[in-house]
Design a protein around this nucleic acid. Structure first.
Lengths: 349, 349
DNA sequence: GACTAGCACTCGCAGAGAGCGAGTGCCACT
DNA sequence: AGTGGCACTCGCTCTCTGCGAGTGCTAGTC
């Protein structure tokens, strides 16, 4: 069915114009429309012949006999890979983006949130930003604060300027002095260590220093262990913005489809999995329709780009919208957002 | 049109059965259906007469000549106020709720989140929990942590076990000692004070202690001021759960309506305003259809209940769903959730 | 051989009309 | 007061019809 002949110049151009047209107004595109809006000046009949070729190759299809043609998934693929002429961002937009994302008084999470909501606002679609998978999340500081008789608040600050806190139920009262003492020991021993290493080292360290510590102290250290353990697990793994913008699109007028999409955003698991795959990609990556392999994205496209911290790729951001989206604009926006986010993260150290 | 005659026993009963029926399957209810499912054994013709009376009073209406009747807003009002027989919660459910909401190792926000998601899960609708408006949010502890050359992390702990943190950009480097010194002074001076009072007192205190402080210290105190000021403004004022559950209901199949609703949840302002009004109410309060006064709630009902901390009412929680909702179940659920939340808050002190 | 004009054909869509059925209001009767 | 009977209303669904956009094919032209 789909012979892989090299496309003629004309066929490519027609496909391009057809896709652009379809993206603009969503309706199937007929031969006459195409003959009018294409720079190639041939009659509608000739165009029909070429369109027939394109259909043979599986790049376009007609929803029914007497309608125009719409791009297939494969057609979109070709369009995105070789035909689309991306619109570079306006300098003004770019500056605005830079300014908004990299506020000086923001911690990592706030930067991510801004990036996400900006991305969604510019593209008018839903956006998602993965929380960075830093190789090194290290301990900067741990502190205990007695709340009431048997409750202690553990505050943990990481090198990402993130503050994580957790309330710990204790079996007896601890004095402020005791708590400070243990916190000091803890900070001296583990400051600058990766959190994951802290977790594993705590056990052996407890063993080793058994002689130097009394029972009370050991108990508190166990508390510290709790604090460090739970701290970064219950964090959300991604930041989502503008889901409800998806309701604007006709493609998602069926409630079922829309609900599946919304659930996908809530469940997160599958979503994360998809994004994970994009970490390796070098630049912008586009999943069209069913390519993602997830049913809830069947009528969607997902445009992603990895972002870095230093040299290392630490996360992915992207937008989710209808397959019929303005790739020429969305692709550069996603690309630039990733770059701006990267430099914002770098300037935070 | 609507004569305010006292309703006969029969008319009341019929209205009740009609509303229950309509709530169950959403279709207009006809006289025959009613004669079959009502305990009153009269013929359909008789029921038709009574229904005609009910229509005169504006309690029910028929969408068109040859359909059954549906309750009007006023009909729902009467039903909710005097006819509904609420289903008390199962002991099992109640216990489960208690357990989930009042975990020992939760801070206020986590408790609210649990309550909200539980409420949404049980009712299968969207839920919203206002963040408590404590009369007294007092300072428990403030701490500075140097992050980099000109960045300081301010960590503020309130008597609600809430940790708020903020990154502050400074104009020069501060040593750890300097920071500790100011934090000490700050904590000694303001510990136990209401945050709002701290804000206002900081100015005069700065003035008064000018002699005792050097320029550097004053600068840090200004930082503290920043920390306290912004701290509780950018907090969300409410916790929302299960918005997407609203997509399940036929009533909201029109995208426009649904979008308006979703936006209302995002905008928050109007929502908060509505909830504020419920603070004064003593128990469960029900807004039916347009009663709320907000256009985006036209086809919705909102069921709210205030919750307390100690004696004082500090917030409101509630659910939002279609007017055609199972009030007999939703009302007690909202009621009990508010009670459980109240006692969870009390046990946190 | 590449392109074009003409033409018969297909098929979705919107509107009109018909039949059905649920439900009503009214009236005469018990 | 309550009931049975009956004519009437009106939304829903199905079918039919005409319209128009768009196609594929064929014969003709450069």
């Amino acid at each position: 069915m789909s012979s892989e002949l090299p496309l003629t110049e004309r066929a490519q151009h027609l496909l391009k114009v057809l896709v652009e047209h379809h993206i603009r107004d969503g309706k199937p595109v007929g031969s006459t429309t195409l003959s009018r809006s294409s720079r190639i000046k041939v009659s509608a009949a000739t165009i029909r012949n070429t369109m027939s070729d394109l259909e043979m190759m599986g790049l376009i299809q007609s929803p029914h006999t007497s309608a125009g043609r719409v791009p297939t998934q494969k057609g979109y693929r070709l369009f995105v890979d070789t035909l689309v002429s991306v619109q570079p961002l306006e300098r003004l937009e770019l500056n605005q983006m830079r300014e908004e994302i990299s506020g000086e008084e923001k911690n990592t999470r706030e930067v991510l949130t801004t990036a996400s909501s900006l991305l969604s606002q510019i593209t008018q679609m839903a956006s998602v930003v993965m929380v960075p998978r830093h190789g090194r999340v290290t301990l900067r500081h741990l502190e205990f604060l007695p709340l009431s008789e048997k409750k202690v608040l553990a505050i943990l600050v990481t090198n990402r300027d993130e503050v994580q806190n957790r309330i710990i139920q204790t079996d007896r009262d601890f004095s402020e002095r005791e708590l400070r003492q243990v916190a000091n020991w803890f900070n001296q021993t583990f400051e600058g260590e990766e959190l994951s290493r802290v977790r594993s080292r705590l056990v052996e360290e407890l063993e080793r220093a058994r002689g130097d510590m009394d029972a009370a102290m050991q108990r508190i250290v166990k508390m510290a262990q709790q604090a460090v353990t739970s701290s970064d697990q219950n964090r959300d793994e991604m930041v989502v913005s503008g889901r409800s913008r998806l309701m604007e699109y006709d493609e998602f007028c069926e409630m079922d489809r829309l609900r599946m999409l919304f659930n996908a955003f809530s469940e997160k698991r599958d979503m994360i999995h998809l994004l994970d795959q994009c970490m390796e990609a070098d630049g912008v990556q586009v999943f069209i329709g069913e390519e993602s392999g997830y049913r809830f994205f069947d009528d969607c496209s997902v445009v992603t780009a990895p972002y870095r911290h230093g040299e290392e790729v630490v996360g992915v951001l992207g937008v989710v919208g209808p397959t019929r989206m303005a790739y020429d604009r969305v692709i550069p926006v996603v690309d630039m957002t990733a770059k701006v986010l990267s430099s914002a993260l770098n300037s935070m150290d």
